[in-house]
Design a protein around this nucleic acid. Structure first.
Length: 302
DNA sequence: AAGGCGAACAACCGCGATTCG
DNA sequence: GCGAATCGCGGTTGTTCGCCT
């Protein structure tokens, strides 16, 4: 331990509970600033940068640590990323309890998932079910049930296929690029009919540009569980900001619950803001992919 | 039971912007 | 005005954990 305070020694790696406590004491005393003084005063053998990062990402009050992104958060991130690009800090201000690191990691994971899905070898394989798991869980997991008619109506292929590895395995990738819609639909429906019921729709959201973007299914995520954002708060370091510091976890997930009242920044999305393919997640995808997003006609088109 | 693999998360690094003396 | 110190952001890497075979 003495070594940790030798001149020039800088500790790296995971933070210990003791270090967190030292850092918290510093913040309680001086506020979330003067990070470099933590080291210069010999309180911790960590750089100011490291201390700040630890505070921002893990020790700040009101963080949703351990909570997966909800469908609504996912939708927001996609929309905001399309508008702002990789401005994670800015995007994070629209998501209560999320840090830029959270958003960045979430986006990175999502992107990798999508890339992997698109790189799947093109095989036509109707899933062998072995009588265990229904074919559709990934597709329908926890989505609200709907009738077969609704299935027909809601069956927009790109939306359905994009988030569903099972369905991906049923189709040829080239078919996704240049689809034979009737064939795909038949394949899909017959597979569904054979393999599983009930069928639900894939959650998706309509972007302001009129396209339906799929929300990637997450078996652990409840659909739809939307936080009441208007009741949540952007962080603020008022005089009493340290109140609410005690961890208060919800039962379902490890969320810090003590959210103060206040307002989130207004979502300043323009009325007709475009989700373009030149920016962010979808930029590396073939343009043809986007022809498959169901296009909802705008009022002027109708 | 063990190993492989992918997802999620934590933390570091480099760099530009800002602040301060 | 200038240089050093500090801060903040985005990209990247390393680690851990859970699932699957």
């Amino acid at each position: 331990m003495e070594r940790e305070f030798e001149r020039g020694y800088v500790k790296k790696g995971p933070w210990s509970r003791e270090e967190d406590e030292v850092l918290l004491r510093h913040v309680r005393k001086y506020g979330p600033r003067e990070w470099s003084s933590i080291r210069s005063k010999g309180l911790l053998p960590r750089t100011g940068k490291s201390c700040r990062l630890r505070w921002v990402n893990k020790l700040r009050p009101n963080l949703k640590t351990g909570c997966k992104f909800t469908a609504e958060e996912e939708r927001l991130v996609i929309e905001l990323q399309a508008q702002f690009g990789n401005k994670w800090a800015k995007i994070a201000t629209y998501l209560a309890g999320r840090t830029d690191n959270d958003v960045k990691n979430f986006w990175s994971s999502r992107r990798k998932r999508l890339e992997r899905m698109l790189q799947k070898p093109p095989t036509l394989k109707l899933q062998k079910n072995k009588g265990k798991t229904p074919l559709t869980p990934l597709l329908v997991d926890k989505a609200p049930p709907c009738s077969s008619n609704e299935v027909e109506e809601n069956l927009s292929y790109p939306t359905s296929y994009m988030g569903n590895t099972d369905v991906f395995e049923m189709i040829n990738l080239p078919d996704l690029i240049k689809p034979n819609y009737p064939q795909l639909k038949n394949d899909y429906l017959s597979a569904v009919e054979v393999e599983a019921t009930p069928l639900h729709t894939v959650p998706s959201f309509e972007s302001s540009s009129g396209y339906n973007f799929p929300l990637l299914p997450d078996p652990l995520m409840d659909f739809p569980v939307f936080p009441e954002y208007q009741d949540l708060v952007p962080e603020s370091f008022g005089p009493n900001f340290m109140e609410g510091f005690e961890e208060n976890k919800c039962s379902e997930c490890v969320c810090s619950q003590k959210l103060e009242t206040g307002l989130l920044p207004t979502l300043g999305l323009e009325e007709n803001s475009q989700i373009t393919t030149s920016n962010g997640l979808f930029k590396d995808f073939p343009n043809e992919i986007f022809e498959y997003f169901e296009h909802n006609p705008t009022p002027t088109e109708q």
